[in-house]
Amino acid sequence: MMANLTIGEPLIKCVDVTKTYIMGEQQVHALNKVSVDFIAGEMTAIMGPSGSGKSTLMNLLGALDTPTSGDLFIEGRNLSSLDVDELADLRNKTIGFVFQQFNLLNRATALTNVKLPLRYSREPVADIDARAIECLSMVGLSDRMNHRPMQLSGGQQQRVAIARALATRPAIILADEPTGALDSRTSIEIMELLVTLSKQGITVILVTHEEDVAEYAARKIYFRDGVIVADDRKMT
């Protein structure tokens, strides 16, 4: 399904993306004419101080929000040309979002949580239970399928959230401070999981505050006051 993507074109392309919030009299430029590309399969860490616009960018990349101006292209499609249903389908099929606060349904089991995106999928999945179980075992939770979030540790909850993000086999995983609510040992486990996914060809973009977490990524982008101030690729 990368029909619109010509060879060499980036998977995600941002052109002069601006997001402005109006707070009373004041205008807050959360993002100020940001242009950046993400190449398929490359794991990227986005860093920068609090309030520098990292989450704003992630929400735009995840088609959860719309820019004030500028264009975003995912798999060659301009998001501003898509209607609300097409955006919903894009979030379902192409993007897996991982939140800092996990955002699991508390009354549902791990399995039911992972099945959620599959139930909204427009492309019928033959056996959604099998698919959800497969995703849970990918994150190492095949023995916790029928546990509810309250019965799981923070790290395990974030794994369930990652399994949910993987369920529809998306090309992109967006993780906004996925380790922000976890201790350092658990953080390492989650990062190793994301690296594994990246090696399987999924484009992982994550936000983090911590330099040692960012070390797992092939590319580091630094934000300050809504603009990119540095963009480093690891030499391999």
Partner: peptide, 16 residues
Amino acid sequence: TREIGLRMAVGARKGD
């Protein structure tokens, strides 16, 4: 509201 937001984030359409 948050649950609805989450459902939308994982691909629920308005109609869903």
